[in-house]
Design a protein around this nucleic acid. Sequence first.
DNA 1: CTGAAAGCGCTAACAC
DNA 2: GTGTTAGCGCTTTCAG
Lengths: 340, 340
Amino acid sequence: MPRDPASTAPTLEEVAALAGVSRSTVSRVVNRSPHVTDEAVLAVEEAIGRLGYVPNRAARSLASRKTHVVALVVPESTAKVFADPFFASVVQGIALYLADTDYTLNLLIASETDSNKIKRYLLGGNVDGALVVSHHSGDHSFANIGQSLPVVFGGRPLLEDIVDSYYVDVDNAGGARAVTQHLIESGRRRIATITGPLDMPPGVDRLSGWLSAVRGADLPDDLIEQADFTLAEATAAMRRILDRDPDVDAVFAASDQMAAGALTALRERGRRVPEDVAVAGFDGDYFSETSSPPLTTISQPATELGAKMAEVLVELMAGREVRRVTMMPTELVVRASTGS
Amino acid sequence: MPRDPASTAPTLEEVAALAGVSRSTVSRVVNRSPHVTDEAVLAVEEAIGRLGYVPNRAARSLASRKTHVVALVVPESTAKVFADPFFASVVQGIALYLADTDYTLNLLIASETDSNKIKRYLLGGNVDGALVVSHHSGDHSFANIGQSLPVVFGGRPLLEDIVDSYYVDVDNAGGARAVTQHLIESGRRRIATITGPLDMPPGVDRLSGWLSAVRGADLPDDLIEQADFTLAEATAAMRRILDRDPDVDAVFAASDQMAAGALTALRERGRRVPEDVAVAGFDGDYFSETSSPPLTTISQPATELGAKMAEVLVELMAGREVRRVTMMPTELVVRASTGS
DNA sequence: CTGAAAGCGCTAACAC
DNA sequence: GTGTTAGCGCTTTCAG
C-alpha cells in the first residue's frame, strides 16, 4: 500500500530551521519577493534543495485566498464531440500553456441538465478562473458567472448582446472568404456553399465569409444549402445543389467532414473533382488529408487558440487589462481538390 | 472587473450558525458521518441550501491531509490522438464518474521529454491518486510511481513484467475472436487480418484473438499484414493481401479506420463488399458507421471503461481491496459489410 | 530587510 | 450525538 506522502514532505518550517531564518523569509523567497538579501535567498534555496521541499498547495491557497486552479469547463454536448480533433488540440494548447505557469487545470464536464452544480463549484471559491470551451454551440450559458469570476470562452458567443464576455475565436469569416477567393481566382464561377447550422457562430460566420467573397466578385450568391457539419447531411445537401444547378463548378463546405460528404455525392453523380467541380472545406483536419482527392481547406490554429485562451485568462486573473476579443488567424491550405 | 468570489462565499461557520448547531456537526453532515440525528442533518442541509454553501477545498485538504484531487495523466503522444473518439469517451466516463464523488480531476499532459516534472508533481502530495490513459502505447512509464501513489492505467501494460500495476482494459482478444468467429459462421473460409503495430497491446491482442478463431476452425492463419491503425497503411496492407491471395473472402482489420482503408483497396481492385469479400473492423467508432457499406465491428464500452478506471482508483484510495486487472466486455455489432 | 503573530476554513480527537 | 479545542502549512500584516 502506498504510504502517505504528506507525512514525509518537508515543511516550510523545516526549511526555515535549516536555513537559519524565519518562516516569513522562506515564504518570501519561495514567492520571489524582491525584498530579501541575496545571502538569505541563497541559504533558503540551498535548504530547499537539500530537503526537496515542495510547497503545500492547500496551505498556500488557504492562506493566500487564491487557489491557483483554473477550471476547464466542457459542456457535455461538446464532450460528445470531444472527438473533434479541433477541440482536442484546443485542450492540449490550454494544458501546455498552463503547465508553464503554476496554475493547475481542473476538468469539468458540465451536464446540460445540471449546470448549476458547476456554477456553484466555480463560484464556491474553488478556482481562480475558468475556461469554457463551447466552440460549436456558442453557448455562453456560463456568461453571467463572468461577473464574479474571470472567464474566457473559446468561440464567440451566440448572442451578440453578451458582449461583455472575454473570448478567443478563429477568424471564421476571414478564412471562409479567403478560401472562396481562392476558388474564384482559380477560375470558378458557379460557386455553391454547404453551411453548418445557422444557429452556431461558426455556421453563420463561415457563410458570411463565403457571401462576402462571391458578392465581391459579382458572382451569384444563391447556391446555399444548409447541413449540420456531418458527412451524411452534407452528402444530401450536395445532391440538392446538383439538382438545383447542374452547372455548379465549385463548392465550399463549412467543414472538412462536410466537404468529404460533398465528394461522395459528386462521385455518385459522376462529377470529377477537381476537373468538373472544385471542392474546398474548412478546419484542416483529418478528413481533409485523407479524402481523395485531398482537400483544399482553411486550417485553424487550434493549439494556439487554446494557449491564447489560457494566456488571456492568466492576464485577467492577474488583474491586468486584456482585450475582450482575440481573433486567431487562419491559413489557406491548397490541395488537389481545387485544381492541379 | 470580477470581484473576489472568496469574500462572498459562505463558510461552514455561517452554516452552523444558521442551522443552530456547531461547526463539527456541519462538518459531519457534509462528510456523511452516520452519527448525526436526522433532525440535525435536515437543519444543516436546509442551511446549506439557503446559503449555497460549498466547502472550501483548500481548508478541507489542509485539515484532512487529503487533496481530494486525482490526476488524469495523458501522455502527449496520446494527446495527439486525443481526437481518438475512444479516448474522448474514456475521459468523459472518468469525468462523469468523478463528478458524483467529491474528487476533482486534474488534467496533466505529460510531455515525453520531461515526464519527471509530472512525476514530481504527482509525488509532491498534490493529488491522492492518478489515472493514466496510455491506451494505445501501453506505455507504463509511470508504473513505478504506483508504489507511492494509487495509480490506475487504461489499457494493459506493454511489458508483462509490470504485473503489479492496476489497470482496466477492453477485452481485445475476446472481441477479435468473436468478430472473426462471425466471419467464419457466415461461411467465409479464406480470412485475412490487418493488424495494428505489434508493439502495442491492442495490436497484439487483437491479432491473437483472430488467430485463436481461425485456428479453432482449422482455417489457414497465414494471411497477416501489419499496419499502424491508420487508413493509409491499411489500404496498402489490403493490397498486399490481395496480391498474396486473390481468393481471400474476408478480412478482419484491427480498427475501423483500417477497415475503411481495406474498403478503399477492395474497391480499387473491383471487389464487392460483402459479396466478394466480407470486411470487419474493431472499435465501433465513427468510421464503422459512415463507411459504405457500414462496418461490422466490435464496439468498445469506452465510457464504461473510463468510469471503471475511476471507480477502481477511488476504491484504491479508500484503501479497499481491488482486483489489479479489470476486463471490460465488448459487443459484436453486425452491419452490411459482412453480409446482407 | 526580517521576525512575530494571527489567522485562512476545515477536520479530528476528545470530552461531554 | 454534539460541542470544544487544537491545529493542518502557509501568507500576511505589523513591528522592529
